[in-house]
Design a protein around this nucleic acid. Sequence first.
RNA 1: GGACUCGUAGCUCAAUUGGAUAGAGCAUCUGACUACGGAUCAGAAGGUUUGGGGUUCGACUCCCUACGAGUCCA
Length: 592
Amino acid sequence: MTLEQTLQTQISQALSELFSIQVPSEEVLLQATRKDFEGSHTFVTFQIAKQVRKSPVEVGQQLGDYLQQKGTAVSRFNVVQGFLNLVLSDAVWIELFKSIQANTSYGFQPANGHKVMVEYSSPNTNKPLHLGHLRNNFLGYSIAQILKANGYEVMKTNIVNDRGIHICKSMLAYQKFGNGETPESSNTKGDKLVGQYYVEFDKRYKAEIAELKATGISEEEAEKQAPLMKEAQQMLVKWEQGDSETVALWKKMNGWVYAGFDVTYKRMGVDFDKFYYESNTYLLGKGIVNEGLEKGIFFKKENGSVWIDLTDLGLDEKLLLRGDGTSVYITQDLGLADLKHTDFPMDKSVYVVGNEQDYHFKVLFSILKKLGRPYSDGLYHLSYGMVDLPSGKMKSREGTVVDADDLMNEMVETAEERSKALSKVAEFPEEERTQLFNMLGLGALKYFLLKVDPVKRMLFNPEESIDLHGHTATFIQYTHARISTILRKSQEFILVDIPGLYTLHEAEKDLVILLSEFPNVIKDAGNKYAPSTIANYCYEMAKSYNRFFDLCSIFKADTPEQMSFRVALSAEVGKVIKKGMNLLGIQVPDRM
RNA sequence: GGACUCGUAGCUCAAUUGGAUAGAGCAUCUGACUACGGAUCAGAAGGUUUGGGGUUCGACUCCCUACGAGUCCA
């Protein structure tokens, strides 16, 4: 039984005996005591007070007395308004600490037999990855890690958007103006090279529109009539017909892009178990349309188009198949959902996709539910806001994007400059230094993007490089390095067993309390799909450790028992920080 | 025309899901190394939680409304 469960049981008993109120122990809500008050656990008595028509203070007092006298864990308590703050005995904390120490997989849940699929990244193959993709990839990777820690078997997938008119645009521009250039000949990363032609297309296309408009044609009409656009559309038709020359070009250019993405993914530290390509899946879903019609869930309009009515759910009618029999975006998503479930029979499926698709996923999930798909209850859209620049939204066609590779390089350089200025790393081996700068630079970037609640838009200012002080990965990594040093040095001392009776320093107790929350933090992060919960927890942990470090001398402790406990405490804090940061995809160094 | 999301200190973000005096970091100011790592610690200052109503023991959180930022559907 965990400490919390013990308290819940005792409170449940007390409520029954004192007030004849039956509350199942697991429904007894405990919260962490605020820092300004003494205690670790708080029980709020307002509701109970209302039921028994007594003052909240009186109820708190009676409960406190009962727990102190008949319970096993509570040594003191105080009641402020309707808040009963419980102070547990040091012996309880020490015992708890020992159990944490003994548990090698502390914080992680055992396998629960459930499968979950996490789809993330899902890039277009016509341009390089940018800052927005970084948020997506870090979120996706982290949530996969967190779900694993919660006992799930996780399958990470990447749906590559490798076909369509946007792909044809860069292909066409390359065909016309490329002169046979290759990544090798131009010494350019493949995705960057293809991206350049995408921009080139847009530039020339705009020029054509301007020319047409000068002859008095409306903008809308000019966009349609522009020769380049017409050619791109013809190219798409040829691609769909399987024209060998077009397909060959498509394969060649996609190959370049994949090679480029591989480098970027490796740098990000993310990976995938399975790739799906839209060029293979874009015709899926038509079978589902028939199924829906047969079941009477879909309906046909006069022009032959197929729709579903979702107005009962507060949504609109949604088109599923055009009158000419061609599918729309959501048709293939329906088919893909089935395919994914066939490949990997999961009970949960997480889609990490930007919030501009909130409506799309609401519709998609509603349709799958109406179709009675068994996996539909486990569908979740992990929606996240855009990353804005001070100048506003990033627009790839206007060149106002922050490139993923560039940004990662800059972060690593900044970390390197900073480290060298502190002149601590001079004698590190070259390899360790390179690793360290990567750890620090990428860690800062990941942490910056993950500590924020995904639903919120966030601001990134390229003028100010990301902080390496304060609420950052660097701060946490520094704390870990500090702990590692303590552990190395502790080998010079003789350590003894930790006694059962020991008076904890306030800063030590804070750390044990925080350590005890780790499993719940992981569960919570998993339930809410929220890496930011982990990020904030790691920060609290590091902060508390640094405070402890300042207040409590380790190697000049009063007694050998005290020194030994402090070393052991440091070790556990270090482990939890490392595990927590790894859940965010961030590595921590042993020295820096 | 409908729908969704967000709005918290000068700036970037928290707030245990309805709990106590709304917390951190950056920036500003002050203090702490003959100390186990100063990439640190301690402190000051900074708030009508966008405005206005409502619900109740209690509201940043829920409801209504106005405003602002953004997105989607036809």
